[in-house]
Amino acid sequence: MKKLLATLIAGLFATSVYAQNTTTMPANAPMGSTSADMKAQDKMDKANQKEAKEVAKADDKINKAESKASEKKSKAQAKHDKKVADANEKVAKADADDKTKASAKAEEKIAKADMKEQKTDIAADEKAQKKVVAANADKAKAHAKSTEKKAEAVADAHKADAK
């Protein structure tokens, strides 16, 4: 019984040691000290850096587009509020006889101001979304290019190791 237990424990120990020693190297990350592996790692690092720069540029474009749209919207809102205030002021200043006529004109001016503000908001959002889509496409292209460069670096390293 002691021998069986000792054998089972030794087998368990051996498999745990074997499991720790078998590490698989990912296909896209060359590890080693050969010059080909070092060159591949350098190329991969450069590709990562270039991708990060492109992503940062795209993020900057997105932020600029969104802030510009927000600025246009706030200006449109301010103009709208001014037109509404002016229309309401004219109604308040109107004589009792002209109140209904002034109120109707004010409602018309307010409706026009609402429409203009909505059009401006829509146009600003549309322009911003176009820029966001373009920036996201730039991000995707940068990622694809980076992945391609990494794959080429790994392939070059494997070719060099095969020689």
Score class of each variant (00 low, 15 high):
7 T>R: 08
71 E>A: 11
68 K>W: 09
29 A>S: 13
35 S>C: 03
52 A>H: 10
29 A>Y: 14
60 D>F: 06
69 A>H: 09
28 N>E: 11
70 S>N: 15
10 A>V: 13
59 D>I: 06
56 A>N: 10
45 D>M: 10
31 M>L: 03
34 T>P: 02
34 T>I: 00
23 T>C: 02
65 A>S: 04
7 T>K: 05
64 K>C: 13
21 N>Y: 08
39 K>T: 11
76 A>E: 15
49 Q>K: 14
28 N>D: 06
77 Q>I: 03
63 N>E: 06
69 A>M: 09
74 S>Y: 07
70 S>Q: 12
71 E>W: 02
59 D>P: 12
26 P>I: 01
75 K>Q: 09
65 A>Y: 01
12 L>D: 01
55 V>Q: 08
17 V>H: 03
77 Q>A: 14
18 Y>L: 15
66 E>V: 05
31 M>H: 01
67 S>V: 04
53 K>E: 14
68 K>F: 10
23 T>D: 06
10 A>P: 05
36 A>W: 03
9 I>R: 06
37 D>Q: 14
27 A>G: 12
50 K>D: 10
77 Q>H: 03
40 A>E: 05
26 P>M: 06
45 D>F: 07
20 Q>N: 05
33 S>E: 06
26 P>Q: 03
21 N>W: 09
48 N>S: 11
77 Q>S: 12
34 T>K: 00
16 S>G: 01
30 P>C: 01
12 L>H: 04
78 A>S: 07
66 E>N: 14
76 A>K: 15
23 T>L: 10
74 S>R: 14
50 K>Q: 13
40 A>S: 13
65 A>F: 03
76 A>T: 13
40 A>T: 08
47 A>L: 04
61 K>Q: 15
10 A>N: 04
66 E>G: 02
37 D>S: 09
54 E>R: 04
37 D>A: 13
32 G>Q: 04
43 K>F: 02
